[in-house]
């Protein structure tokens, strides 16, 4: 029959098209992997070359004299482990605070219709719009009067505030995606609004919350300016400060910086390996219905 013939031809052509698109997709992914990873591979290579093989006229693609000296030097620097620990603490605390406080705010914006919601979103964003340069001095004075200067709690509190716009925008999207009916059902069963938030909404959006947590964690883990400016002793400094301190006035130790870079992405990769499942699912549900 002519009709089914054309249908099968259409199917054929659709199949061909699909294969064609798949080929393009593979090409795109391959290209992007090269683009994304080449600098990192080069960083890894650099981290195991002796300094003399980096600053040289003869470019070495494969390190001829591989060495782990940079990693050893880095790890032996005084205070490195403390600073790594400080970073881990500050990051965890920040994520916990942001998720707790941000969840409430995002839920409110997502579920309630009150005047000035747009204005509030905009207001939260101002914290990102005003140059941090001019925030430094007032922040410093504020933390001092709270007794939080030079403490990890002070840093975490600062990061929490500065992460608020990101978490608010993202979490709002995730909560929007949770159907209101489910919540209503829970409330008929005797839950309060608060109960419904903890027992229905948050579990359903948990993967979205995980995704937000990753965004916040990466930001807090890598923050440098506040970490340097709002602490005054070795004991409360964080990892990005260590990295920055390797760049000296009269030196730029490529190998050390590269090694530092490799070390600093490790924890995040591990975190991702665990969070990956939740992350993908979360982003699936969330972000989304604005």
């Amino acid at each position: 029959m002519q009709f089914s013939g054309s249908l099968s031809r259409m199917r054929e052509s659709q199949k061909a098209m699909r294969r064609f698109y798949d080929a393009i997709a593979y090409a795109v992914i391959a290209f992007m992997l090269v683009f994304a990873l080449f600098p990192l591979v080069w960083t890894a290579m650099t981290s195991i070359k002796p300094e003399k093989d980096i600053v040289t006229n003869e470019l070495q693609y494969i390190p001829r004299n591989p060495t782990f000296e940079h990693y050893v030097t880095l790890w032996n620097r005084s205070g490195v482990t403390t600073m790594f620990r400080n970073s881990a603490f500050t990051t965890s605390l920040t994520v916990a605070l942001v998720i707790l406080v941000g969840t409430f705010a995002a839920y409110s914006i997502s579920r309630y219709r009150f005047r000035g919601r747009g204005a509030i979103l905009l207001f939260y964003l101002t914290i990102r719009m005003f140059p941090s340069v001019l925030m430094l001095l007032p922040l410093y004075i504020m933390l001092r009067s709270l007794g939080l200067l030079d403490t990890l709690w002070g840093l975490a509190l600062t990061y929490t505030t500065f992460s608020m716009p990101v978490s608010l925008l993202m979490l709002k999207g995730f909560f929007d995606a949770v159907p209101a009916d489910l919540e209503d059902a829970a409330r008929i069963d005797g839950c309060t609004r608060l109960g419904a938030l903890f027992r229905v909404v948050m579990p359903l959006a948990r993967s979205g919350i995980a995704a937000t947590a990753v965004l916040i964690a990466v930001g807090a883990w890598n923050e440098f300016l506040f970490a340097l400016m709002l602490t005054n002793s070795e004991g409360s400094r964080t990892w990005p400060v260590v990295l920055q301190l390797m760049v000296g006035e009269f030196q730029l130790p490529w190998g050390l910086i590269a090694a530092g870079g490799m070390i600093s992405i490790l924890p995040i990769i591990i975190f991702f390996a665990f969070a990956q499942k939740a992350l993908v699912r979360g982003l699936m549900v969330g972000a989304v219905k604005g």
Binding site: I141, L149, L228, M229, N232, V247, E249
Partner: peptide, 21 residues
């Protein structure tokens, strides 16, 4: 305490003007 040379003045200013540290 090591203060990176490039950020030294900013940090010093904060400590002097910020009243502590």
């Amino acid at each position: 305490l090591t203060v990176p040379n490039a950020d030294f003045m900013a940090k010093f200013t904060l400590a002097v003007q910020g009243g502590s540290g």
